[in-house]
Every structure is written in structure tokens, then in C-alpha cells.
Design a protein around this nucleic acid. Structure first.
Lengths: 220, 220
DNA sequence: AACGGGCTCCCCCGCGCGGGGGAGACGATC
DNA sequence: GATCGTCTCCCCCGCGCGGGGGAGCCCGTT
């Protein structure tokens, strides 16, 4: 009986690629697809896949949160293979802490992807931070917003911090934000500092960039 | 006769995805694949594709260099569609200066990918403002920020100022921009001040917001 | 009752940022 | 040759920003 895989990624292109790679194997079958973590749980309940190949970065519910939710609510859950573009080690730890069984880079070769799915299905856990680091080195510094993007996915901003970030992303100064929220500037500074820390941003400009890059605020 | 496309991307997964998406169309055909820009020229000579879908980021010879080499050495060259994950404008500008006919984000929907290939094949050039505007419209509520765009059009930034704004929009400090451009920090401060003045921005954060809102840079 | 998290406000302090002004070098244009 | 725009670098200066602390209040959980 074939290994049944559920693909979860917000980019149709990636889903199509994974499907093409996996369905070329006789012993692997794509059970279904989802474009966001929020759709995973009902699909898992219905399709009962053996493996979920899950992107980390998705609009509504990211892969790490989706993994947590899945393991919390579904009895006898499938194995979870976290798929990511970004070769960030922190992802590995976050995903593993959330209960994922393995970790795979999107730029892996087809044979590696297939291998990873098979291993995971067999109950092996798959980690290779070493090769991740190696890949990162090969590709150089690469996409400058990689870390910023990763940041907001991990950051769990409070409601107030989210409000402040939105106002920062509209160009308001601390004093203006304070006036808008009817609080003191010192309070705003506290929130701003918290936002910067959680986002790994050095200054408000970087925080606003992260807000745009992650879709937390959208242009237009 | 179908549009014949050559896929050039170092990630097999992306190639597989593009192939799956494009071959689902009756009027599009994948003529071949290459994993690096260095392999493109002989392949183009042999396969004579109508369109080359070319990644920018590749290990040996990147898409921009490959585009230059292709247009320099191959008579009656194919149309070149630059495919990228991160649409930092530097890439877009670089690619267009190199002679590419259009650019496409990997996260575009299949219909958009197909559309782009058809347009390019027909000789339409899929240029920066249009596609970015389109993306911006899809991303947000649809309409874009006319004011921000107007501000940027009125601004008429010089080449150097545009460079500086792009680096600002990547979160770099003045000192970091100076290092990147190999000039003094005082010089960068001059450019930044000019950008702020031309954009009507009070600080770099507002300038970056204008850059995003106008589509001068787009979220990745 | 004890605890933790979130929101609020306060202190001090260093420094990067941005405004204002000026100036030399170079190339294109006239 | 003179003018203009761009790029480069320099000065001084004020201030907002962000880091480092701490602290009280409310509320939900334990």
C-alpha cells in the first residue's frame, strides 16, 4: 500500500512541483492539497494521510502553528514533514518543538524529497541542520529579507503590539501613536521595543519591512 | 503551433512545478530544462525555444548574466521571462537592463504563469510597473495607492537615489548603505535627505512605506 | 492566594538620524 | 567656456529613537 501524502503550501507552483515529484513514485500517492494551515485539520480527518508535507510560511495559519494544532486535536496524527524555502536553523528547532518529524528544503533534489517522505512515513525522524548550513553557505547571503520574514512567522505579537506595528507601518512616530492610542509615549516605546525584539528588527524601519514582507500589512 | 518553453532553474522542484503548470496547457510545450545559466546557450541553440523561463538565482551563472550572454551570442534569441522568488527591484532592473522581456514571481498563480508565458511569446513585454501594479492589486483590496505612486512619479529620483531607497527598503542603516555602495556615510546621508525631500517623507520609515505603497518595491 | 501575562508608565543614556549649510569633481548640455 | 545636474564629502546641531532597567495595575489561570 502506497504512502499517502497531503500537500500544504500556499504556492500552487510548489504544490504542483511536489505532486509531480512524488507521483512519479509508484509507492507514493498524493492524497490531497491545501493552501493554508487553517485547512489542514479537517482535511487530515477526512483523508487520513500518512504524511503531511507542510510549508512553514502560510498566510493564515503557519506550518508550525498548524503542526501544533494538528497534534493537539487529531488522534493518531500523520507524520509531519516541514517544508521550507529558508535555510534557517531556528525553523528546525521551532518545528521540532512543535512536534514535526522532519525537515526539508524546497530546493532539495527530487530524490531527496522522495527519500525524505519515505523515511518519515517509516517513522524515521529526519533532521539535517548540517546540510542546511552547508546549503546556506553555498547560496551566500541570499535573499536579504529571509530573516525578517522568518521573524514574523515566529513572533506572537499581542493585540496591542499588533496595533502599534500597524501604526508604525503607516509612518507614525511614537508620539503620534501615543496620541492615537491615547496612552503615554513611554508606553508606546515599550510596545515598540517589544515588537522589535519579537521581530528581530533593529529599528522601526526593519519592523515595517517585516510587516510588509510577511503580509501583516499589504500595500494599496 | 505551440509555444515552446525552456525552463532554467537550479531547483528541480520549481522546474517540475513549472512543467506541470505549463504542460497542462494545450498551446504550451516544455522544450527542455536546465539547472544553471551556464547550460542555457547550447540548449537554446539546439532546442530553439520561443521562451526561456529563467531563474535569477543560480549557482554558477545567474539569470541576469545568462540573459546577457544569451542575447550577446545567440542570433534571433528567444524571449526571456525572468522567474524569481524575491522581486527586489534590483533584480528586476538588472534583468530588464540585461534585455529580459518580463519577470514573474514564483508564487504567482498557475493562470498568471501561463498568461505571462503567452504574453511574452506574443512579443508583449511584461514590464515592471504593470505587473507590480497587478500584483499589488491582487494582494490588497485592488486599486493600489495612487497617492503614493503619484508621489514617487513626481519624485523623479536619480539613479543613485533609487539605489539608496531600495537599500533603505531592505532595512539597511546609513552606514551599511555606505559600505554597500562603497561611499562615505555623509554621502549616503545626502542621498537619503534628497529621497526624503522628494518623497515628502519625514523619516526613512515613511520613505520605505511609500516605496512599498507605490510598487517601487514589492513584498516578497 | 499565588502566579503569570499584558498594558501602562517612569528613569537614564548613547547614538543614529535628519536638517541646514557649504564645497569640490565630473560629465553633459548649451 | 559657462552652466547645470549629479555624486561625492564635510561641518554643526537638535532630537527622536531604542536599550537598559524598574514598577504598579488588572485579569485570567492555577
Amino acid at each position: 500500500m502506497p504512502v499517502r501524502v497531503l500537500l500544504v503550501d500556499d504556492e500552487p507552483l510548489v504544490r504542483a512541483g511536489l505532486r509531480a515529484v512524488l507521483e512519479a513514485q509508484p509507492d507514493i500517492e498524493v492524497a490531497g492539497e491545501a493552501a493554508d494551515g487553517a485547512a489542514v485539520i479537517p482535511l487530515v480527518r477526512r483523508l487520513r494521510p500518512d504524511v503531511v508535507a507542510m510549508d512553514v510560511r502560510m498566510p493564515l495559519l503557519d506550518g508550525i502553528e498548524a503542526t501544533r494544532a494538528l497534534l493537539r486535536t487529531v488522534p493518531d496524527p500523520p507524520k509531519i514533514l516541514v517544508v521550507t524555502t529558508f535555510e534557517n536553523d531556528e525553523y528546525v528547532y521551532e518545528a521540532l518543538r512543535a512536534g514535526a518529524d522532519g525537515f526539508l528544503l524546497k530546493r532539495a533534489r527530487p530524490a531527496e524529497i522522495v527519500h525524505a517522505v519515505r523515511l518519515i512515513a517509516e517513522g524515521e525522524s529526519l533532521l539535517f541542520p548540517a546540510s542546511v548550513r552547508q546549503l546556506a553557505a553555498e547560496y551566500g547571503e541570499g535573499g536579504g529579507n529571509r530573516a525578517a520574514r522568518a521573524a514574523l512567522e515566529r513572533a506572537r505579537l499581542t493585540e496591542r503590539e499588533g496595533e502599534v506595528l500597524r501604526l508604525m507601518a503607516r509612518g507614525l512616530s511614537n508620539a503620534e501613536i501615543a496620541a492615537r492610542l491615547v496612552v503615554g509615549t513611554e508606553t508606546v516605546k515599550s510596545h515598540v521595543s517589544a515588537v522589535l525584539a519579537k521581530l528581530g528588527a533593529r529599528d522601526r524601519t526593519q519592523a515595517v519591512i517585516t510587516a510588509y514582507e510577511s503580509g501583516f500589512v499589504a500595500p494599496g
